[in-house]
Design a protein around this nucleic acid. Structure first.
Length: 260
DNA sequence: AATGCTCTCAACCGCACTCAT
DNA sequence: AATGAGTGCGGTTGAGAGCAT
């Protein structure tokens, strides 16, 4: 057995734990949301970079909306899907706060329902193409690949380096085990709102004034100290202006890597 | 209450693409 | 131009929650 095999065996798969979420959020805020392999290594998470990215993009990103699609969003999904087919990430860019995965899942459910309804309406002898075939038909639409350049270059909302709220991510993490009802999720979504850029920049100013500076990258703008203090109180010790981890065992790899 | 079915969504996989070297 | 690492995307799967019987 070689080293690579051993590494593969050590990699974790399956659902993320709360600790892993916290760890990932921390390191993304430190290093940005681009260098996933690096983050995977530095963080000590036994996950692939891909897995880290996916977790961040689909679940931990502070700009994410939760809860059911609004009628407006449903309309947009229908509209853009008819236009672009299964280009989920492209569609997602048109629905801020929604991920390609979410839209994809929604569409599958949606189309399944539609298919079932359709089956009821038509005679049993008539064959009916399922959702995937419907989708592929749309994908083959010649309009699909004729996007103007500015649209194809659009960045998804989660590419914005969303610093926003670690607390948001943590609270999501805390609710990871579906302890919230769907109803509650919707209410929280309404109450939480989304940070505006102005608010984010204000937080950045605050952050700098407090002398708290994540290392580099876009995320050098970081998160408001209040937020950190509030949301990560079990992970940070604020002591006379100095900060240190209170749970070093969660983040063992950074110092090794950065000093070594 | 127990069981089976359906729905939802997080996560994985493989392929495609981008970019640095 | 070729190559390999890193990243993004779309398809698929499986676990768990909710609902019906």
């Amino acid at each position: 057995m070689n080293n690579i095999d051993q590494e593969d065996e050590n990699l974790r798969k399956g659902p993320w734990t709360e600790h892993e979420d916290v760890q990932l959020v921390f390191y993304v805020n430190m290093f940005g949301d681009r260098r996933w392999d690096f983050i995977a290594k530095v963080s000590g998470l036994k996950r692939t970079g891909k897995s880290c990215r996916l977790r961040w993009v689909n679940y931990l990103h502070p700009g994410l909306k939760r809860g059911r699609m609004t009628p407006q969003e449903e309309k947009l999904v229908l509209e853009y899907h008819s236009k672009w087919g299964n280009r989920w990430s492209r569609i997602a860019r048109k629905l801020p706060g929604r991920t390609d995965n979410e839209i994809k899942n929604y569409w599958r459910t949606h189309m399944r329902k539609k298919a079932q309804e359709h089956k009821k309406c038509i005679s049993p002898s008539t064959s009916f193409s399922n959702s995937s075939s419907t989708s592929s038909t749309c994908t083959n639409d010649p309009t699909v690949d004729s996007m103007p350049m500015d649209e194809t270059k659009e960045r998804s909302f989660y590419d914005t380096g969303g610093i926003e709220l670690v607390s948001c991510a943590i609270s999501k993490s805390n609710n990871n085990n579906n302890t919230m009802t769907k109803h509650n999720k919707v209410n929280n979504e309404e109450q939480e709102g989304i940070y505006s850029m102005d608010e984010i920049w204000k937080d950045l100013d605050l952050l700098e004034n407090e002398g708290i500076k994540p290392v580099f990258d876009r995320y050098s703008n970081g998160v408001s100290p209040q937020v950190w203090d509030y949301s990560l109180n079990s992970f940070w010790m604020m002591d006379g202006g100095q900060q240190e981890f209170s749970t070093n065992m969660f983040f063992p790899a950074t110092s090794e890597l950065l000093t070594g």
